[in-house]
Write a protein that binds this DNA or RNA. Sequence first.
DNA 1: CTGTTAGCGCTTTCAT
DNA 2: ATGAAAGCGCTAACAG
Lengths: 349, 349
Amino acid sequence: MTSSPRPAPAPRVRIEDVAAAAGVSAMTVSRALRGVDGVGPARRAEIERIAAAMNYVPNGNARSLVASHSTLVGISVPNLMNDVFPEILLAMRRTLTAAGFDTVIDTTEYDAAREEAWVRRLIGWSPAAVVLTGVHHTPRVRQWLRASGVPTLEFWDWTADPIDICVGIDHEAAGRTLGAHVCALGYRRPAFVGVAQGHDLRADARLRGLRDSFRLGAGVPVAAVETARDPSFSAGFQGTQALLAQDGPRPDVVFYLSDHLAFGGMMALQAAGLSAPEDIGVAGFNALNITTVLPTALTTLRTPRHEMGLAGARNILARIHGVAPPRAVCLPAPIVAGDTTRRQTDRSG
Amino acid sequence: MTSSPRPAPAPRVRIEDVAAAAGVSAMTVSRALRGVDGVGPARRAEIERIAAAMNYVPNGNARSLVASHSTLVGISVPNLMNDVFPEILLAMRRTLTAAGFDTVIDTTEYDAAREEAWVRRLIGWSPAAVVLTGVHHTPRVRQWLRASGVPTLEFWDWTADPIDICVGIDHEAAGRTLGAHVCALGYRRPAFVGVAQGHDLRADARLRGLRDSFRLGAGVPVAAVETARDPSFSAGFQGTQALLAQDGPRPDVVFYLSDHLAFGGMMALQAAGLSAPEDIGVAGFNALNITTVLPTALTTLRTPRHEMGLAGARNILARIHGVAPPRAVCLPAPIVAGDTTRRQTDRSG
DNA sequence: CTGTTAGCGCTTTCAT
DNA sequence: ATGAAAGCGCTAACAG
């Protein structure tokens, strides 16, 4: 079955067509439809009626060309899997959409070069604003964005010196907080299951924080296992299998990049006859929806995804409208003290 | 901390600026940068060098205005949660991006009016193509898209009469297949846990298929429980609790809207002292990544998300380039016969 | 309150 | 192989 030849597309209705039909000038139609002053109410209603009947849709490109800015907001995230960024986007886009902006989403797959290429193209569309994940970007991205004057929001991560404005959490501190909590319970052989370092810089920061806390708190190192590049449930499973297959004493607690991996990891532990917290401790990250249904509450750290999306959108909107928002906002990320870790009495090991 | 006043944005580099710097006309720069014939190789290299040095980015709005079509592809999905659409988008966007198109993503939250408003605005941007989830749209959306001649892909669902082209699966048939498989195992008191009907039309179709199969196979009805509007893990948990709290004989098998809900449901069953397949059967839908780590393999049905994204992108690209792709493609969706259902010997009940 | 003029930045068409 | 003129559809600025 192949597509039948489509009828020649009808030429698009232009503002002049509406003007002709209404017996007024294009300018009057423009004013009427945008709701600006200078058109009598009767005329305005009439024009609106005619425009709707003719299915008139203003040409966004012509508008943006003359205005030298559009209603497009570009948002770049590493990926859309595992609900983490979708949750942030949900709050962010809701606010942006309500304010009349459309969003162009890019996924970088943690590749700075891809992000750079996308920012370049995006700037060609004269966007109303640009939103980037994290605070690490190529020098060119920083330069282009600064030079172009496009309002720019960096989110998820935090820095005191953003390109423009930023709303995020301190991932290293989060790692430190979670590590300190678990270290204080008496665990002394910690391990971390994540992805290859150097890609997800926030994950790297959390691991640094974890290591700090265990070095300071107990003088012990944190073993790290790298698993599949794609952080899925199965990656947690496989990473944990690899961890258990290693020589030497078995870890007494395992930290995971994210709750997804932690759940996959717990399944691998169960398959190996181990369960948390009895035989081994487990800690995740993010406090995702899945943790609400697990029989044993997962020890994790809640990333304020909804709040971050909301605050980010609000601040970038303020920026767009010329109001100066806070330059850098660091949100709290509270510990969720679950039951997959517990006080260790046996300190042999 | 408020943002410091930013330096006045540098006026954007235009093609004329590059032309002046290179000592040629704007037309020559345009030709050189687009790689069309009519520029000497030496000149071309020189112009490319100068344009890069000046950080020249062509104005997409001006381009689209004159070309009356852009490199933007609009994609509308119900939501970005739970990995279902992100997986399809991953394959789709990869192919589209490789071909030089950027994507504008919209989320409808299953609201046809929102989709209509978005399509309207999108058409104003002269997109290269429009991609919609499902085959049910408002009459206006169909009319606008058909009249505008914009290549349009409908995916996920299937119809013999798409707006333009379509790539999907037959959800009613999928429900029937899964239902028939489970019915043949001897289950006779089936139940379904999903969201309120009338929103997710594909989910409704699957339930119809399920009901058909049990009516034809055993002459029994399928009880349906509606849970939270948002299909998350916790929705499966709560829906199952509601199901178990109902009067009358307990179901002997529970079908879920999606594997997420199925997992949440299994946790609720476990909390109630029931496990699959011993005490009750469980079946999901989609074959998501989480099913690869569960100790008991989930009975489900694999939706070909990767293949669908790929085929959809390929076909819409062909459409854009004037090649006639297949008008409607229906992909196979195979049963995954897991261990959360098993042959029933006891037919009392 | 309404209309006319000019031009946003680029590319198509037509000369040379 | 290169350039000049014209115009895509819209709106800011000005005139009436």
